[in-house]
Design a protein around this nucleic acid. Structure first.
Lengths: 219, 219
DNA sequence: CTCCATTTGTTCCTGTTTTCACAAATATAT
DNA sequence: ATATATTTGTGAAAACAGGAACAAATGGAG
């Protein structure tokens, strides 16, 4: 179905390009920590699982960041990518559903590295409401709209059980949320202006199983 | 880079087809629970975010499961998909890294619905070793090879911090693991016979931010 | 029995994505 | 200076995936 594409005056590129840029950024930061200052597209690809041509082309949609015959200056490329991706300023996000997965995400170190901060959490379970987990107070679902509007949060992590995911997503949209990272195994119906990314662990595992079963047969 | 493709004597299809089959299967099960016995490709698509042509085409790689003029018999299609995906028999998997995310996965209900069972868990932290979480005893990393070999586990969930992920993946491969679902934000280097799927929450969130930033500018 | 309304399975076409391949640019060595 | 070795940025080509569209099959109504 409708494949995500992003078009600038220059050209059009796929949404996958953006995901790859995020991957590039993370690994460039690792290189910088190791003290590497310049790297060529040929030597960075072992970290990325991407071809060098793809690496260069993904970058080319946004400008010319390298130097021919030399490569890319790591520090500069990090800055450019942060600018492109928008992670040079802090992003506030909300979390709904403080179950096991929700609690794991509240403590996920990966987010803070990207200037992403969970600023509020909600649950319907009275026993959880009021608790402070990883520095975030769990609020009642009833307060969802008020708090999200006041804090001007635009992105939410949806970690509720599937039977309430659709209902919750509608509340999120009504509260002004424009992007949802959906961990519940259910396709959400939302207005086209709202962007949903699905993280579906069961599908990933099942496809892994298919691959293994297939290889077993071949052997 | 090397895009995953699967080829039969009939034809070739992308790995995404398999992920979609898994999605179809889950939603067919929901329909069955609701008591729906027959459904057409046109009426199932609202649940799937996929076109009806794609639904039919994905299935056609594996056989003819529908009846023209009628649709698909839900019960039969579930059985066929379980057969194709390999989830008609139980799959034992291992988990490495019993941190917050690891513990969340140990308690994830979604797996059991797909005949997937975590049968062993490992951590390097002495304080965690010996504990029983969700019915699974946490073992020392040193015992990883012995236990995985003895239990003949072929799939592992990798939830360690990124700095040890590569090292752990090598141990897993040496122990006979053939498929890894990698939650650490690091591209693993493994033999080509081993299949790795990456679940990268930070990349997902960053691309979401890009999208939102872009839309804000437009508005 | 015939006609009509459905719906599948599949072919063909179209637009996208990836890779190839090379000119242009840079640095280094002699 | 000049030649040589790199490496980028980018058109062009190849490989792919998705969707439109339609023949073939089915069931039901009259």
């Amino acid at each position: 179905m409708e494949r995500e594409r992003i078009c600038t005056k220059k050209s059009c590129f796929s949404f996958d390009t953006i995901k790859r840029l995020s991957l590039y950024l993370r690994n460039l930061k690792r290189l910088k920590e190791k003290g590497i200052e310049v790297i060529s597209s040929d030597r960075i690809i072992p970290l990325l699982n991407v071809s060098s041509a793809q690496f260069r082309k993904d970058l080319s949609y946004f400008g010319e960041f390298g130097k021919r015959g030399v490569g890319y200056e790591v520090g500069r490329l990090i800055k450019e990518l942060e600018e492109i991706l928008g992670t040079n300023k802090e992003w506030k996000i909300a979390l709904v559903g403080v179950g096991r997965l929700g609690q794991a995400l509240l403590g996920f170190e990966g987010f803070s590295k990207f200037n992403i901060k969970i600023v509020c959490a909600f649950d319907i379970d009275k026993k959880k409401v009021g608790k402070v987990i990883e520095g975030v107070k769990v609020e009642d679902m009833k307060k969802l709209k008020t708090i999200i509007k006041r804090k001007r949060v635009k992105i939410a992590l949806l970690c509720t059980p599937p039977h309430s995911a659709q209902e919750v997503s509608e509340k999120l949209v009504a509260a002004g949320i424009r992007g949802i990272l959906n961990f519940s195994p259910l396709i959400l119906k939302v207005p086209s202006s709202v962007f949903v990314s699905n993280v579906d662990m069961a599908c990933e595992l099942e496809s892994l199983i298919f691959f293994l079963k297939r290889n077993e047969r071949k052997v």
